[in-house]
């Protein structure tokens, strides 16, 4: 019974799950690659250059 429930839960993914993953992903990338706050910019500086984010 438990297995059955798990299977149903794993095979049906609501559209919301993709939107959630996408939104959280873009939010993280905004922080690590785009945000202009000086503290963030300086901390992320080398990584931004290495990953070629256009950040300044």
């Amino acid at each position: 019974m438990t297995t059955q429930t798990a299977n149903i839960a794993t095979t049906r993914t609501g559209f919301g799950a993709y939107v959630l993953a996408l939104t959280v992903g873009v939010a993280l990338l905004t922080v690590s690659g785009m945000a202009q706050a000086t503290v963030l910019h300086d901390a992320a500086h080398d990584q931004r250059h290495a990953m070629a984010f256009p950040c300044h």
């Binding site: 993914t13 799950a17 993953a21 992903g25 873009v26 993280l28 990338l29 690659g33 901390a43 990584q47």
Partner: peptide, 29 residues
Amino acid sequence: RHIMTVVFNVISYTGYALVLVAAMGFAKA
């Protein structure tokens, strides 16, 4: 400085991974 580079690499790659798994899961569905 170098620890921050590791931290932000993990944040960036996790961000990109979230977008990638969303696309992969959507294509599967």
